[in-house]
Write a protein that binds this DNA or RNA. Sequence first.
DNA 1: TGTACATCAGTGAACGCGCGTTCACTGATGTAC
DNA 2: TGTACATCAGTGAACGCGCGTTCACTGATGTAC
Lengths: 195, 195
Amino acid sequence: MSVSPSRKELSHARIVDVASRAIRRAGYRGVGVADIMKEAGLTHGGFYAHFDSRDALVVEAMAKAGQDNIASLTKVVERRLIQGGTRFQALVETYLHETHMERTEDGCIIAALSSEMTRQEDVVRDEARRRVDAMVSMVQAALPGAADEGEAAVVTATMVGALQLARTLGGKAGRSLLAQTRQTLIERHKHATHH
Amino acid sequence: MSVSPSRKELSHARIVDVASRAIRRAGYRGVGVADIMKEAGLTHGGFYAHFDSRDALVVEAMAKAGQDNIASLTKVVERRLIQGGTRFQALVETYLHETHMERTEDGCIIAALSSEMTRQEDVVRDEARRRVDAMVSMVQAALPGAADEGEAAVVTATMVGALQLARTLGGKAGRSLLAQTRQTLIERHKHATHH
DNA sequence: TGTACATCAGTGAACGCGCGTTCACTGATGTAC
DNA sequence: TGTACATCAGTGAACGCGCGTTCACTGATGTAC
């Protein structure tokens, strides 16, 4: 099915991957084209053979970051499930884990960038919406019973908001907020919601 | 008690006020010193007679934005209270109102900047922590019964997260998320929490 | 299998622009007598 | 009340730096015969 990638495709993938971590770590405008290319082992001049503009890279990087994060969350959730507990509990404990608070770079792109999303150009905003939709869907799938999208969206907002505030507070206060949020969400969604 | 402010103090206050709206609208780095001074009716050269650095202004602007927002929320909450309902209900309905989704400029500074807060210099991060603490205290005071700080922090995270995701989604989807979050929070905190 | 040539991916210098910061200067306000 | 001078708030040009983007060029890879 998958053809072996050309040299250019390999470079392209490396640039996108570096960028997906760079924007989560430093924000949309936190790292320049030259730095990203350097980290991918290239010089900045070749950038425009790969992307029409910096924003075009940002869009690809957001998609990659979102997909990678959902894939890695799913993986950890599966592993935790073996040790018992519900799928939702495993998701909450993974997303609101101390590790996620400390490592923005390979974490949730929404928590990393949400307050900047509304200020981006249209192409980037469109991708941002897709990322939010994808995360809501993932949460919805993890909720017990046949939870509706609205309920999943509120839970998503709670998790994203808590992670961001915990990062801002940092240290003990941050960890405490994470713990409190985990407990609240798990307790509240132990069983299917009755409407 | 209050002495009539000097000409310089008036200019200073105008600059801080303009900046407090500028950073909420455009982000920490979204508006330059020159633009802020211009909007305050001055030229950029005079800036450093008022502030040691751009970050020093940002710190003052954050404090002003936070205080103004809490004051204006309190005012609206008082007005709504007359029409019945609990204080918490009034707060949730004001904070998660469609107007707040549309107007970042004079809204909550945490929702406007949270994902950028961890990337700022220490002085700015310190002020960010103070803003989060202040908002949690306000929410705690509005919760029915003697709600603890942890519970208030989780509610704060939910409100901030929902507002940000609503802004990112925009339009109908955004309004729907706001409505769902209002309903969930109000229903859940109708009465004092029993621990 | 070997040679000649075309295409491809990447290089590195340069351009233009915006931004934070500095500084010599100016006009207005306030004070001393 | 009026004049001379000092201080104060603000002006506008300039500096240095970083960044997105462009472009002529180079070395490597692939293809034709």
